[in-house]
């Protein structure tokens, strides 16, 4: 009996503490400014990386937070919070709970379009407020240096004849980025995409499998291929960028477009806010991200990671995302993978 009392007491004290404080919390929220006018953050800003520490989202978030803070662009503290799970779905559902709160941002990239279409998240990009896009990265398709194919057309000719003779490897599961970027370009080249064999391998095994000959084509990001190309281990048949890029080695990668395949795939990365943000706060962040994108400090970081500058403001970003989604939808319908 005494023990039960103790548990009850523990519960009671905590509930008491909770009640005692709820008033303050309400008071804080009403301080937000209304429509129009200018807006400034009133408390520390939280940037959610919907993945674990160390990944692409996490790195982008931490680097952006660092530059925004150190260059004095935003006075308030900026903290990066990791919400891991479901390829982003856990983080998105977390943000969706903070409707209209301009102090919660998150970093996003194509998975926010792909994952909902795969039926793995109830929230998609329409459910949030896209603020600004910052960078772009592109996909690359690589084969072993001694492979019989010298350009994308060679490869796709073989695949048109016998699609099952070629195995493609990527890090992520079917229906996600590495798979979709390959399917998108292959379809434009006229390959029967329902016959493409795709294997997913994590933890660096995908490159391993390409190098040891288990698979034929590696669908990945451009940066991942550079060192292997330099060492003459692999060759890049094509990249998904609209035009050739600058930079050592990268400048030699032919685009799909110049090989007569009129298709691109952008691995964009930018920042979103919760649903229902007001115009003043959207304008504030657009402004700050523009300043960040133009800053030298961020340019240095972009160079280091091999990211391309690709600033888009709120409206442009939104239109871009809708267009991206339509494109992917068509592909997934063709593959019979659309689970939305």
């Amino acid at each position: 009996m005494k023990k039960l009392l103790l548990i009850a007491l523990f519960f009671f004290i905590i509930v008491l503490a909770a009640c005692g404080n709820s008033d303050d919390a309400d008071a804080g929220e009403s301080g937000d400014s209304g429509e129009g006018g200018s807006w400034e953050p009133e408390e520390s800003i939280e940037i959610v990386a919907p993945a674990g520490a160390g990944g692409g989202w996490d790195t982008t978030a931490r680097m952006v937070a660092k530059v925004l803070g150190e260059e004095g662009m935003i006075e308030e503290n900026i903290g990066v919070v990791n919400k891991t799970g479901g390829g982003g779905a856990v983080g998105w559902s977390y943000i969706a709970n903070y409707e209209g709160d301009p102090h919660k941002l998150f970093v996003a990239s194509p998975p926010i379009i792909l994952i909902p279409l795969n039926g793995q998240s109830e929230y998609g990009h329409e459910d949030f407020t896209p603020l600004s896009n910052l960078i772009a990265d592109y996909g690359a398709f690589a084969v072993r240096e001694d492979a019989e194919w010298d350009d994308l057309n060679d490869l796709f000719e073989d695949m048109k004849e016998d699609p099952e003779s070629v195995t493609v490897v990527g890090e992520s599961a079917p229906g996600s980025m590495d798979h979709i970027q390959f399917v998108q370009i292959a379809k434009a080249a006229g390959v029967d995409i329902t016959k493409i064999r795709y294997v997913s391998a994590q933890d660096g095994e995908s490159l391993t499998q390409l190098l040891n000959g288990s698979v034929d084509v590696y669908s990945t990001g451009m940066a991942e291929t550079v060192e292997q190309v330099k060492a003459d281990n692999i060759k890049v048949l094509g990249i998904t960028a609209p035009e050739r890029l600058e930079g050592e080695v990268i400048e030699d990668f032919p685009t799909a477009i110049e090989q007569g395949i009129d298709e691109t795939f952008v691995n964009w990365r930018g920042f979103f806010g919760p649903p229902g943000m007001d115009e003043a706060s959207i304008a504030y962040y657009e402004d700050k991200f523009k300043e960040l994108s133009d800053s030298e400090a961020f340019a240095e970081i972009r160079d280091q990671f091999g990211w391309d500058e690709e600033y888009m403001g709120h409206e442009e970003y939104k239109a871009f995302l809708d267009e991206q989604k339509e494109q992917v939808q068509v592909l997934l319908d063709d593959l019979g993978l659309n689970n939305e």
Binding site: G85, G86, G87, A89, V90, S93, N118, G119, Q120, S121, E122, S172, A173, P174, G175, S176, V199, S200, Q202, L337
Partner: peptide, 15 residues
Amino acid sequence: IDAQSGTQRFTFGNT
């Protein structure tokens, strides 16, 4: 999520 097929297994719709 199964990596080879993208199928959700035994998740019961829980993110």
